[in-house]
């Protein structure tokens, strides 16, 4: 890979200052960034590690909100987010144990891989993405695959999840990468049901609003049996056709509801 300068600040302020340098990039767990750099597809001048910033690491629960520090590894979320069991379960099934010890929620959301798990949780939960400068609603945050509302030099300091009455994430793994070939997160709140789908669409994570409407009226797998998913927007690749992914969206949504 190309060489770069490595710095490890201990505060958010120092990190933001370091990121002002041209071509400086934040480094969180690095589980996607480092493989990308090995392929020489990314050439930062400086990598600013966020793992030395204590305030970015950890899970807290207050009232009906679970807040996760931006640099919290998946393994910590899996172990500590017991106030939001579906989220903890999702974290416990990302990648593999080594990836979960390094990869972070902030890194995942900032990257917004179209097959990543966390975007589905954040979108279905109506989470708030907290950055060093503002708060962004999940509905505004995800802007297509690998694209988010984050500005240059802006980092995710935390994510606030309103805890739903019931929730479940169904991940159907792509057999090689073990990312989600399709994943569906269903969250039931007092004011309605939210359904977010990852892995399936050319536009990245999305809400399946027809299912949300149907499930908000009748929270059972039967409620969506008459719905169809339009395959024309779905990804078609070596691992699954668009029609197959459209089927998975429906099947997994039903299973998620049944498991709630």
């Amino acid at each position: 890979m190309y060489n770069f300068e490595f710095v490890k600040p201990s505060s958010v302020e120092e990190a933001i200052a370091a990121l002002k340098e041209e071509d400086a990039q934040p480094l969180s767990g690095g589980q996607t960034l480092i493989p990308t750099m090995k392929q020489r597809l990314n050439q930062p001048s400086k990598l600013v590690s966020l793992l030395g910033i204590a305030e970015l690491n950890g899970v807290s629960a207050e009232g009906s909100t679970v807040t996760i520090g931006g640099a919290t590894p998946h393994a910590v979320v899996a172990a500590d987010a017991s106030a939001y069991p579906a989220l903890a379960a999702l974290a416990s099934n990302i990648g593999d144990p080594a990836v979960r010890n390094r990869g972070t929620i902030g890194g995942s959301l900032a990257n917004n891989d179209p097959a990543a798990c966390y975007p589905a949780a954040a979108l279905a939960s109506g989470a708030t993405i907290v950055t060093n400068s503002r708060e962004i609603a999940a509905d505004d945050y995800f802007q297509g695959m690998f694209t988010t509302a984050l500005d240059e030099g802006e980092i995710i300091t935390g994510v606030k999840f309103p805890v739903p009455e019931a929730a479940n994430y169904q991940k159907f793994e792509q057999p090689a990468s073990r990312f989600a070939l399709t994943g569906v997160f269903v969250a039931k709140y007092a004011d309605g049901v939210r359904v977010a789908v990852t892995g399936a669409s050319n536009d990245g994570v999305f809400r399946w609003t027809e299912a949300e409407e149907a499930l908000s009226g009748n929270f059972s797998a039967d409620a969506i049996s008459g719905l169809t998913v339009d395959a024309s927007d779905m990804i078609s690749d070596l691992h699954g056709t668009a029609e197959y992914r459209a089927n998975l969206v429906k099947v997994l949504t039903g299973r998620a509801v049944a498991a709630c």
């Binding site: 159907f172 057999p175 070939l181 691992h239 699954g240 056709t241 029609e243 197959y244 089927n247």
Partner: peptide
Amino acid sequence: LSPSRVWTAMN
């Protein structure tokens, strides 16, 4: 026999 191929064959 990937899931996609098996499902497609069934459907």
